[in-house]
């Protein structure tokens, strides 16, 4: 029996081997590319082992004044935008609690569908919507003109004032309804008996919310907040890439976008860009473990 089992075990492994190979090639092998941050690699010239430069690029990142300034600016944008999002991370919970208070079931259903649609369209489409509504001849400008509020159209897309807030608003437009779904489900899982008991005791609606709903949702909120904190450096580049233009670059460039922009600059600086993204990965992994450690310490539960 033991031998047959073993043979069966190997056979099963062989069946999944092609998929393991795909994971190895597309997820693990690229890690090997981190060595480029220790070499002077300038594609399309072939890679040469003789071009080893040690920590030159890391030193450049931390010592060369123009790189330091640029990196500080990028970090400022990254933390500003992640920070605003973090400050408002209670919004989905608020949205769900308020939604739960709606009495009219068809309206509730309509709101849920309408509010979650933007989550499923791409950032390119979000940008297109922004462009077509906020451009010179877009709906916003024509309404403002009709009401006599402005004489000449404002080109919102080129305007870089309050950019962090605007990026947060687009992010919220896209994500809020969907992020609330998790809380909606959590609310429907709360024991009805608690509300009934509270009502018998004469609790008002807001008292029920304050002492039953919110405390029941806090664990979910806590986990999501920890995940957000550990993802502070990973804003992704797509949103900022599509909204980026030469008027707003100073405020829109976040780490992920900066890494991309470095690699497409002329001449491309692959090595520096790799060094930076490697530092970013290491720091965010450390943040993730710290958040997880905090979760285990406080709640005795892992978030991973």
């Amino acid at each position: 029996m033991g031998k047959a089992r073993k043979a069966q075990g190997y056979k099963e492994f062989l069946l999944i081997l092609p998929f393991i190979a795909l994971v190895a090639v597309f997820a693990y092998f690229p890690l090997y590319g981190w060595i480029y941050s220790f070499f002077d690699y300038q594609p399309p010239l072939p890679f040469s082992w003789d071009s080893f430069v040690g920590l030159k690029w890391f030193k450049l990142l931390f010592q060369n004044q123009s790189y330091v300034n640029q990196t500080l600016q990028v970090l400022r944008n990254t933390f500003a935008m992640s920070g605003i999002a973090l400050l408002f991370s209670w919004l989905p919970m608020f949205f769900a609690i308020l939604l739960n208070e709606l009495r009219n079931a068809p309206f509730k259903k309509f709101v849920q569908t309408a509010a979650t649609i933007p989550n499923f369209i791409s950032w390119v489409l979000v940008y297109s919507v922004a462009f077509l509504l906020m451009g010179n001849n877009g709906m916003i400008n024509s309404v403002l003109k009709d009401w006599g509020l402005i004489a000449r159209p404002i080109d919102f897309m080129k305007d870089s004032s309050h950019l962090w807030l605007k990026m947060w608003l687009w992010l919220t437009w896209k994500n809020l309804g969907w992020a609330a779904i998790m809380y909606v489900a959590a609310i429907s899982g709360i024991d009805e008996g608690m509300y009934e008991a509270a009502k018998i005791d004469g609790a008002a609606r807001w008292q029920c919310i304050w002492s039953i709903t919110i405390p029941s949702l806090l664990p979910t909120f806590f986990v999501l907040m920890l995940l957000n904190i550990s993802n502070m450096l990973n804003n992704g580049m797509e949103q900022y890439y599509v909204f980026q233009n030469s008027w707003n670059r100073e405020y829109i460039q976040v780490l992920d976008l900066y890494v991309y922009n470095l690699s497409t600059s002329k001449p491309p600086v692959y090595s520096i860009s790799t060094a930076l993204s490697m530092l970013k990965s290491v720091v965010s992994l450390a943040l993730l473990f710290a958040a997880n450690g905090l979760s285990i310490g406080v709640r005795r539960e892992s978030i991973l």
Partner: peptide, 10 residues
């Protein structure tokens, strides 16, 4: 994830 450049080169 390794980052976009190592991924691109792969």
């Amino acid at each position: 994830n390794a980052g976009i450049i190592p991924w691109y080169l792969t």
